[in-house]
Design a protein around this nucleic acid. Sequence first.
DNA 1: GGCCGTTATTTTCCGCTGTCAATAAAAGAA
DNA 2: TTCTTTTATTGACAGCGGAAAATAACGGCC
Lengths: 395, 395
Amino acid sequence: MRSTPHAEAFPAHTPAAAQVFTAVLSHGPLTRLEAGRRAGLSAAAVTKAVRPLLAAGYLAEGADDDARPTPGRPAALVRVNGERALFLGVKVTGGELIAVLTDLCCRIRVARRRPLPDRAPGPVLASIAELVQELLAHAAESDAPVAGLGIAVSGDVDRAEGVVRYSPFLDWRDVPLADLAATTTGLPVTVDHDVRALTVAEQWFGAGAGLADFALVTVGTGIGCGLVVHGRVVAGAHGVAGEIGHVVVDPAGPACHCGNRGCVEAIAGESAIVARMRAVTDRHVTGVTQAVALARDGVPGAREVYERAGEAIGRGIATVANLLGPERVIISGEGLAAYDLFADQIRRAFTTAAFGSAARCDVLTRPLPFEEWARGAAAAAIQSFITHTPGTGQG
Amino acid sequence: MRSTPHAEAFPAHTPAAAQVFTAVLSHGPLTRLEAGRRAGLSAAAVTKAVRPLLAAGYLAEGADDDARPTPGRPAALVRVNGERALFLGVKVTGGELIAVLTDLCCRIRVARRRPLPDRAPGPVLASIAELVQELLAHAAESDAPVAGLGIAVSGDVDRAEGVVRYSPFLDWRDVPLADLAATTTGLPVTVDHDVRALTVAEQWFGAGAGLADFALVTVGTGIGCGLVVHGRVVAGAHGVAGEIGHVVVDPAGPACHCGNRGCVEAIAGESAIVARMRAVTDRHVTGVTQAVALARDGVPGAREVYERAGEAIGRGIATVANLLGPERVIISGEGLAAYDLFADQIRRAFTTAAFGSAARCDVLTRPLPFEEWARGAAAAAIQSFITHTPGTGQG
DNA sequence: GGCCGTTATTTTCCGCTGTCAATAAAAGAA
DNA sequence: TTCTTTTATTGACAGCGGAAAATAACGGCC
C-alpha cells in the first residue's frame, strides 16, 4: 500500500488480532473459541483481540440464529461488520475499466464499466478518478467511510512499491500508479497484479478460504494462474509467477506471441481459439461468442478446437499439480462460459498427466462474473487495510 | 522427527534463538550485529539468544583471523561449533545404501556405501542398523555425541509422521520407518523424501543459503526437483511436489513409466538416454557411462540424444521458473557428469521458454558427489534437531 | 601514557503479548 | 432451585524482544 492519505487505522495492533480478524472474515460468524482454534490462540487471547475490534465497529456480535437447545452457555457468534468500511476495486484492461464498490466483507455493492479511450498513464488516471468519483457518490449514501482503493493491472506489478513495472496491454513502464492514484483520489491505494489480486480474493473470501496451498487458474483472453503456497500468495522473485499461460504443452503447437510454440495460451487463449476456429471451419469468426456457437451447433471440427484447448488447460493444471501439489485448483475466468465444451477434456488431461497423489487435488470451477476482477482489486485493498504486511493472511 | 529416545535437547527455546542459530549455521562466522540483521533482530536479542548456545557449546566465539585495522571495537565472530554434535545420514535406493557421518555443520566425516541385497523392510532395516553401527564406531573416536539419524527415501514420504507411504523402488507401503529405525538404533530418526532432504541441505548449507525462493533440480536416474517457496520447502498437500520429471514437455515423445508420453524423465532420465542411445547408434549400450562415451566420441546421432535431453530439462526448468519465479535454480545430480554434453541445450531451452523476467533467475550447477544424497538426509536430521518445527528456517 | 573517537557488545529496564487458572455467565436438566 | 455443562472473561504472570544507556575494546593522537 502506497498512501499519502491516512483515512483511518485498523485497530489490529497485535498479530493475534489480525489473525483472529482474518479468520472471522474468511469463515463467517465464529464463536470465540472456534476463532481461537483456527488462529491457533487461546480463548483468552481471542477475547482480548476482539474487544478493540468490537469497540471500533469492525466486528459485531451476532445472535445465534438457529440456537439449538444445547447444554451449556450458548456461544456468542462474532462476525465482521461489513458496513463498517467500504472499498473500491478497479481492474484496468487495455480497453476498459471495471470498477466495484464493496463492503468490508468484499460483497459488491455497485459495479461499473467504462471504456478506456486512451491508454497513456495520464488519461487512464483521469478515467479512474472519474469512475472513483462516481462510486464514491454511491458510497456516500451510506455513512460508511471508503477505506481504500485497489487497482489491478496485468503485467509486471510491484505491489509493495505500488509501481507498474511493465504492462504490455497498456504499454506502460515503471508507472508509480499507487502514488499517482493516491494523490488524485485522496484514498489509500493498493496496486497489484490482476491474477494475484483475484487470488487474494479467493483466498480470503472464496473457494480458497482456509487452504494453505491452492492454485487459481483463469481462463479467458489469456490463461493465468495465481498460486498460494504455505498460506501466502506467490509473487516470484522477479515479479513473474503463475505464468501457466506460457507453459509449453506441445512444442509442435501453434506459435505464441511470447515467441514459443504450443504454450497453453497459444492453444486455449481466446484469440487462439478464434483463430483456429476460423481456420478449421473456414468461416468468418470474429469473437469467442461465435466460436462457442459454432462448437455448440456441431459444426464439423469446431468441437475439436475446444477439446484441444481443454486438453492444453488440463495439462497445464497437471503441471502445476505435479510441481506444487496444491490441495485444490480453482478454475475460473470468462472462458468458463464455454466450460461445457472443454470440461471433460480438462479433467481427462489433468487426471492423465497428474503424477500419483497429485491427482488427488480437487479441481473445481467457479463462475466469474465480469466484476470479479475488480472485486479482486478490492480484496487487495482490504488486505492492505487490515494488515500492512500483505500476504500474511492464512485464511 | 519421530523419536523414542531423547538424546539431548537443543537449547533454543525461543524463536529468536533458532533464527540466530540457523543464520550463523548458513552464513559462516558472523558478528552478533550481522546475525541480528539477518534474523531481523536487535543486537541485544542476539546477545541473549547466543549466550545459552555458547554455554551449551553449540556456538563458539571465533577470533577474527584477518583482523584488519578498523576503528572501533573489533567484532567478535560467532560460529557454529561443528564438533559439538554428529549426525548420520542414510540414503536408501533400490540397490544400495549410502551413509555419511557429518558434524553439526553438515561436513562429511566418513562416507560408506553398501549393497542392499533384499528390499523388504526388515532386511533393509537390518542393513541400515549395521551401517549405522559402523559409523557410530567412527563417531566414538571423537567425544561428540551422535544427535540424530536422517534417512532419505524416494517416493511418497510423510516426514512429520516418519512414514514411507509408498516407495516404488523398494516396493514399500506405509512403512513406519522412523519408529522402526529409532527402536533399532536408539537414535532420534528423521525420515524424509530424498530430494526434499537434499533441498534442505542446499537451503542451509549450499547454494540456496539465504534465499527465500529457489529450486533444486536433480538429474540422474530420475529427474527430480525440490522447491523452496517463502523460505520453506514445498511438501505438497498430498505428499507429492516437485515432480518435474513427470512434466510433459513433448506429447509426441517417448512413453514414460508413468503412463504419459514425453515426460522430462522419459527423455532425459538415465534409462531413457541409454535406451535411445541404443536405438540411435544401433550399438550395445548398457549404461550411462557408455552413452556418454559414445556422445563424446562423436558417434553419429549420439550427441543429439544428449541435446534432446538437455532441451527437455531446460524446458522443465523454464516451466518451474514460469510458475514460481524462483531467485535461483540449482542443477545437480549424478547426470551432471555429462553436463558438457547438454549444458548448452539446457540453457538455450530455458532462456527460450522462460517468460519475461522469469528468465532473470540464475541457473547454476553444483557437482553432486555420491554421498550428497546421504548428506541431505543428515541435513534433515540436523534440521529436526535444531527445531522441531521443520521447514521454518529461512537461511 | 592518557585521552578521544569509534564501533561492538552487554546490561538494564520496560512494554507488550499471550497463557494459565480461576471465575462469571448462560443456558438446559433434574 | 440447584446442578451440570459449555462459553466467555478476568487478573496474575512469565517471557520475549526492543530501546537506550553503559561498558568494552580497540586505533590514533597529542
